[in-house]
Design a binder for these strands. Structure first.
Lengths: 249, 249
DNA sequence: CGGTATCTTGCACGATAATGCACGATCTGA
DNA sequence: TCAGATCGTGCATTATCGTGCAAGATACCG
């Protein structure tokens, strides 16, 4: 990727998101953080943006940097997304479930990632538009409105003819005893099928979904390879969870 | 290959990709990098592009970002989109093809529209997220990168079991004699299937696609119920086209 | 037909730009 | 105040660039 092209992309991102995080960009564009910081320094030199600790903000009179740190830190879902994005390896066959957390994950996948991605979420698919080296397979079917994923017999059947290295499972609740559960029968059905055909199952979980139960069961906890949660306050012993639970921040 | 020919190719590439990489071009055209760089230097001298380390970028502060271009180029397409949106009636079964024009159409559909929409474009599907009363069916398959629609045998088969009241057909070219054509074999295949199963076929057409021909045939002109074009200058008699052509502005 | 001028291309070589890493300084949140 | 993240700088490495030059192609002219 050309240097100028990258800088242009940074500016576009800044306009779109209202901020830039050096570390995330470094991962997504597959260059060192030094390079990103150099770019930001130069763009700031041209007055195109304002540098702040951790990244950059728009140059315009857009608010000062009172609590820039908090702004830059981004939501929990972004943190989870980044952690998830780092798990994907070259040439893997990955199924990505729907949901806002997984959408964050997709946004943080390296732009030059070479892999096969399967999804039943049109939004996930659309978000992969610019990942030119990703083979994208969309599972069709009736679209469930509230979760915006495709379900139905045909969808299950299509999935039943595939095998995945990695599955990013979205759940509405996770419970020590009841395992992973969700709010819709059709969705549970299809998730269960995917779980059964995946070597690794990873769930990116926000704290509010832990120790909760939804109506329809997906699978017991031990079918899930890894549960990644946003770590609470640093210092605080990260809850009393054993693996497969892990914490990021 | 002639020098001038090569330079023209470079400019075409630049317009298409938004950037040029010297090394890649050297390999592709089988000349030394020096030659490419010489070309770029001369083209830059004529102000046709801007040189950057590793290649070249567009001369004008062109909006390199495709997403931005999509919204900017919107004028005519928005008009077409509105015209198309007005054709959809309650309870109809509508297939919406991919493409930026149809995306505009979807954005202008009434939020309370009650209908069944079928599409093989994840972007179209995602854009219908907030249309709560729309039954949405997504046709899955391998995703064609450049047009971002799903294709393949499974997709055609799924479509072959449906019937549509209305099909918004996207084309890259429309010609009096050759009819509707497009740039990709797989796409033509699937469009043809949809046309054959639709009571009405509507094409929203920007002027630049008229009287042009693309490699793969979809259907003759008389299979198309209605071609809606953006009217040229108001006052100017809207070309010499008979129905099915109609003009809006 | 032979000779010359012009253009194009590829290669060599020193100069410049881009990148990543190391290390110490600075900033941030607790 | 402290630990960890982020930053700036200097340096080594690699890729790219610009220039000069020579070989081949083509056109032009006598």
């Amino acid at each position: 990727m050309l240097t100028q092209e990258r800088k242009q992309l940074l500016l576009d991102r800044l306009r779109r998101d209202g901020r830039l995080v050096a570390k995330d960009l470094s991962f997504e564009l597959d260059v060192s953080e030094d390079t990103i910081r150099r770019d930001l320094r130069e763009l700031a030199g041209e007055g195109l943006l304002t540098r702040v600790h951790g990244g950059a903000m728009p140059a315009s009179p857009t608010v000062a940097n009172l609590d820039v740190r908090r702004t830059l830190a981004g939501g929990d879902k972004q943190i989870l997304g980044r952690a998830g994005a780092e798990l994907v390896e070259t040439e893997q066959m990955v199924f990505i479930d729907g949901g806002t957390t997984n959408l964050e994950l997709v946004k943080q996948l390296p732009l030059n990632l070479k892999a096969t991605v399967v999804t039943h979420s049109p939004q996930i698919a659309a978000a992969l538009e610019h990942h030119a080296a990703v083979d994208l397979i969309v599972i069709g079917g009736s679209l469930l409105r509230h979760s915006m994923v495709c379900v139905g017999a045909k969808a299950v059947e299509a999935i039943s003819r595939m095998r995945f290295d990695l599955f990013f499972l979205g759940v509405t609740a996770l419970h020590e005893v009841e395992g992973a559960t969700t709010g819709c029968f059709e969705e549970a059905e299809i998730k269960r099928e995917i779980v059964s055909r995946s070597a690794e199952v990873v769930t990116l979980l926000t704290a509010d979904k832990l120790d909760a139960i939804s109506p329809f069961s997906i699978c017991p906890l031990d079918h899930i390879t890894s549960v990644i949660m946003v770590g609470g306050k640093p210092g605080e012993p990260p809850r009393d969870k054993q693996p497969p639970f892990s914490f990021v921040h």
